[in-house]
């Protein structure tokens, strides 16, 4: 509404940033391919090595970075708006940890080795079971019930993951589980993209439809309901949309923390506190952050396979501390 120009500048800037990082993600990598050559290979039909690298390795990685980052940013913003709590993030409602548990069980039982899509499918199943449990526990209760149900599901899933690690028959399985849980976009194929995309897009649609309802929820549940917001539908869409998109993102990329928490925080002051404006900005911001982090891991420690989730936490946590330091006077 008011001050629209600044907002569209922000959206335009973030879109441009995301686009540039996406192209860089395609163009940069251990195989030193010239910029123009790499991009033209994307659309080439011949089966040369460069074409193979571009189409089978870098393209899925860049697409998954975009999808995962936007998912984390969007769902973080929706959950903070819905729960009216600046500490909310996708992990809070138990989705990430349950998806992780599904993936860990797939590795533990050998299901992931027996069948190439076994791991992401098991992770998705974990996320969907979590959402059914949270929804059933929360019933038609308020915001606090959703948080408590999420914490309970999250703790149980973490405990089961620890149990799987504890009872792991061989150290390699334990190591694989550990590495998977750190989160990474390396060595993903187009099959992963095709598997995750429908769930992610369906989740986005649900989350993106909540803008107006979340705006009204700024004034509390009663006021929002009196302004025509269907609270049950809002809760269902927020939880299910997060489960679908974050569940699918976690299934293909592992658990990547901090993006869903930090990105809405950074962008909220720039969007005038209005949730419907924060959602697209936060999705673009999340995509930029994951794409940038995924480019960085290729150069910070080449050959050592630094995990994406580790980097986002290492960069994210100090930044968050600084943010808290800066705004602590407003919080008091």
């Amino acid at each position: 509404m008011m001050a629209s120009r600044g907002y569209w500048l922000l959206i335009g800037g973030l879109t441009f940033l995301t686009f540039v990082l996406f192209v860089l993600s395609l163009a940069l990598g251990p195989a030193g391919i010239a910029f123009g050559e790499s991009l033209s290979a994307l659309f080439s039909g011949d089966g040369g090595p460069i074409v193979l690298i571009m189409q089978e390795i870098r393209l899925p990685r860049a697409i998954l970075g975009l999808l995962t980052g936007a998912t984390l940013g969007l769902s973080g913003a929706v959950l903070q708006g819905f729960l009216r709590n600046p500490l909310a993030e996708p992990g809070l409602v138990g989705i990430s940890s349950s998806a992780s548990l599904g993936a860990v069980l797939a590795i533990y039982t050998g299901f992931s080795a027996a069948f190439p899509l076994g791991l992401p499918l098991a992770a998705l199943a974990g996320a969907l079971i979590a959402v059914i449990v949270v929804q059933a526990l929360a019933g038609s209760g308020g915001v606090l019930t959703v948080i408590l149900a999420g914490v309970a599901v999250s703790s149980f899933a973490s405990a089961m993951t620890s149990l799987a690690l504890n009872l792991s028959p061989n150290p390699f399985a334990a190591l694989e589980i550990m590495f998977w849980m750190l989160g990474s976009l390396a060595d993903r194929s187009m099959t992963h993209v095709w598997l995750a995309t429908p769930f992610i897009l369906a989740g986005w649609l649900m989350l993106a439809s909540l803008g107006r309802s979340l705006d009204a929820l700024t004034l509390g549940a009663d006021a929002a309901a009196s302004m025509g917001v269907d609270l049950n539908r809002t809760r269902r869409f927020a939880i299910l949309g997060t489960a679908l998109s974050v569940g699918a993102a976690t299934a293909v990329a592992g658990a990547i923390g901090f993006v869903g928490l930090v990105i809405p925080h950074i962008l909220r002051p720039l969007t005038g506190g209005l949730q419907s404006r924060l959602l697209p900005a936060s999705a673009l911001g999340g995509a930029s952050m994951i794409l940038a982090a995924d480019i960085l891991v290729r150069f910070v420690a080449p050959g050592r396979d630094l995990k994406l989730g580790v980097l986002t936490a290492i960069v994210g946590a100090p930044f968050f501390l600084w943010l808290v330091w800066k705004s602590r006077r407003d919080l008091l």
Partner: peptide, 12 residues
């Protein structure tokens, strides 16, 4: 819940 400008809030 959030630092929304007054006119935006009233417009809700």
């Amino acid at each position: 819940a959030w630092p929304v400008p007054v006119e935006t809030l009233v417009a809700l």
